[in-house]
Design a binder for these strands. Structure first.
Lengths: 223, 223
DNA sequence: TTGCATTTCAAACATTTGTATGAAACTATC
DNA sequence: GATAGTTTCATACAAATGTTTGAAATGCAA
């Protein structure tokens, strides 16, 4: 067993650079310079550049998923095996938002890296992404326990929209700030979480009246 | 004035290739091969590869924005200068969803190109994107007319969430299909539009009770 | 210390990339 | 039909990039 110094130095440097400058702009030579190691070290320790990126992303994804599940489990235990939809959704979107928003200078490298991931999707990451479906199913199951009467379709849409709002807020927080001239405070993370959760939950609990709307009413301006 | 044949052939070929294979995978040589023109033609007619991509995106963006504004105007005229929030939101998200979803084999190249844009953000496009804020302001203004009593902050969030749900649905329709095992029909575009619109509108009209929630209630599982 | 395995290093490699060049082909005007 | 302007073409260029190589250095056990 050898010293992992080089390995970890590369990982740290790569994450830092990707977080700051994006995937497109960072070359292996940038990474090894930042890490103060030899150019060949990346291929020696990781096999290829793509595998380095993949390892970085997998590590962070696992952390994120673990945190989500921890919150979910805690919420279900609190409720005696059944959590409120709000709590389930909060466990789903909370970690993402908490990790990726908030005062810019306080964001961890890991968080900034994950923001990059959500902005610039790159092949090795896209391949991994497709595996998170099993993870999401656990939240669908929890939602099913929360809202026994609901049809699965509604639950899927609710979860999808919750993730959509969270993701887009992370990804486009800058645009929202500009558009609202600062009136929307993207640094107040907990408020954003509640906002996303409440909208998503509302769409679910009102689901039977509203979101199943017949869709034909105003179809005329769709000509 | 010369024949634009080469120019348009390049544009068409590039859009087709980008739509099918993404930006990362398509080289100038691929494009000129597909267009049956010489390698130097791209630089001669467009200046650079980035300018070609930019022109492609600008063209499609203008079309999208024009369509959105047309629907908005029609809705406001119908309502005598004031449209319902639903109608405003429908004008905002309808064109995107209508263009980018629906039966896959019926999607235009333009639509598939715009999907790519939303998945793989690439520098020349990101630069242009920042200009669409003025366009969005027109929708905020219309929403202000629809809901005179509302605070601007709520309107911004409502618009942001509407776009978020639409965008993410386009971008991740495949994941939603997989997750729901086909139970969520991403081909029924009009139904999706109504779904997005109703959720966003609900978050706005109920805004004063729900989306301004104090956010502290369950903050304990956010430790 | 000797010997063996792991790790580091400088250098080179092999491609791929977008772009530039300068001559040839073409087009339209007088 | 000569000429000037435009467009096309084959080819070359230059730079960047991920990867490989083989030798040197290092660590470590016997």
């Amino acid at each position: 067993m050898a010293s992992d110094q080089t390995r970890t130095a590369i990982l740290a440097a790569a994450e830092r650079l990707y977080a700051d400058r994006g995937f497109g702009d960072v070359t292996l030579r940038d990474i090894v310079a930042e890490a103060n190691v030899n150019l060949a070290a990346v291929n020696y320790h990781f096999g290829s550049k793509d595998e380095l990126i993949a390892e970085l992303f997998v590590t962070r994804s696992i952390q994120l998923n673990r945190e989500r599940l921890r919150l979910l489990q805690a919420a279900e235990e609190d409720g005696g095996g059944r959590a409120s939809v709000d709590a389930v959704l909060r466990a789903l979107v909370g970690p993402t938002l908490r990790g990726c928003l908030g005062p810019e200078n306080q964001r961890s490298t890991a968080a900034r890296f994950m923001i990059r991931v959500s902005i610039e999707s790159v092949p090795p990451i896209r391949r991994i992404r497709n595996r998170e479906i099993d993870h999401l199913r656990k939240f669908i199951a929890a939602m099913r326990r929360s809202l026994p009467g609901h049809s699965d379709v509604e639950l899927y849409w609710g979860l999808h929209f919750a993730l959509a709002m969270a993701q887009q807020t992370v990804r486009d927080s800058e645009r929202l700030t500009k558009l609202s001239e600062g009136k929307c405070d993207v640094d107040d993370v907990e408020a954003i979480i509640e906002r996303v959760v409440s909208v998503a939950a509302m769409s679910l609990t009102m689901g039977d009246t509203a979101s199943k709307a017949p869709a034909r009413v105003l179809a005329r301006d769709a000509r």
